[in-house]
Design a protein around this nucleic acid. Structure first.
Lengths: 194, 194
DNA sequence: GTCTATAAAGTGATAGAC
DNA sequence: GTCTATCACTTTATAGAC
């Protein structure tokens, strides 16, 4: 309300945005409170005062926005997973990227990512047919992880194509993985145009 | 030859093994020269004397063993990629895992991994049919990356299955990706037994 | 309330004792 | 040749000046 708390809210938001970007670029250890403060046009003491510790600042900056619940037939599940992935490829999800980059050196970040992914995978696996539903759901997770990391973090060759093009290749894979694999092995069938 | 250089060689090997494991577990920054020395039953000064710097120690410990050249028809390429992936899932490639974990916070490690993967992807893409060969080859890379990371580094749910089981799910995907996607979209066809 | 100065701890690297 | 002691630096976190 008052200009005081308004100003503080804005500073906090600036700090969080700067933290998200720096954690996402350099990981946990190499992102210093000093650098965050400078990037946010503030100062280290203030960052500590607002967030208490580097760890708590990270937790707020890298909180993974949970995808909504995924329910329906295999085809519907495939569609929802495809849409979610498509968004993650198109729009550089800053908080998730910070968590993803940091997870390889900062165990707390790994827990955050793992619990988010495990939650979704279990949910999906429970609705998929086949004895290997858990495994297939794990492969969907791996594919998603690989595509997001490969595009935004590692910048793998070929993955810098327009999101629609990437999804045109990924969608049939996800679709196939939502069906019972214990009775198939032939690759996708020819279709029409590109 | 002499016991002197023999002993030294063995100590160097012990240090390298310890370094690989620790870099693979904790990443670059959180692996200290002191910890490596202790794990190798040696001492920090010696590690520095042998390897010159932490960066050079890492470079030797995390050098990615290049996969052999990949050539042939799409089906042959798929088979070779499948075999290579299968090995990476079965045997915990210590050096590669060190490079993979470190790459997210240590740019030098990222270069190492990226150049290894890009080299292989370009090679594969050049031999695949279709306008989107580069993209499909990138998706193969992302899938491979996701599976290796998901299994060994992140321990994603469902990916702790026996390597053969994981490959039974992954192989049709790789096979599909080696074929021209610009004319397909239907998922894999039903087959016979599990 | 905001920021400066500093404390406490841990790092890679080095010099020199054995 | 091997290892101990230490340097120079950087970090988070805190205490207190404005």
């Amino acid at each position: 309300m008052s200009t005081r708390v308004e100003q503080r809210r804005r500073t906090e938001a600036r700090i969080l945005t700067a933290a998200r970007q720096l954690f996402g670029e350099h990981g946990y250890d190499r992102t210093t409170i000093r650098a965050v403060a400078t990037a946010a046009g503030s100062d280290p003491g203030l960052v500590m005062r607002y967030f208490g510790s580097k760890e708590r600042l990270f937790a707020q900056a890298a909180a993974m926005p949970a995808d909504g619940p995924i329910v329906g037939s295999p085809a519907e599940i495939a569609a929802q997973l495809t849409t979610a992935l498509s968004e993650k490829l198109a729009e550089e999800p800053a908080a998730a990227l910070a968590a993803l980059r940091a997870m390889f050196s900062h165990p707390e970040a790994a827990d955050e990512v793992r619990s988010a992914m495990t939650g979704q995978q279990r949910q999906v696996a429970a609705q998929l047919p086949g004895e290997d539903a858990v495994l297939r759901s794990g492969v969907i997770g791996a594919l998603t992880l690989g595509l997001v990391i490969g595009r935004h973090l590692v910048r793998l060759d070929g993955l810098d194509a327009p999101p629609e093009d990437v999804m045109a290749v990924a969608e049939p894979l996800i679709s196939a993985l939502t069906k019972d694999t214990s009775r198939r092995d032939t690759p996708p069938e020819p279709r029409r145009p590109v």
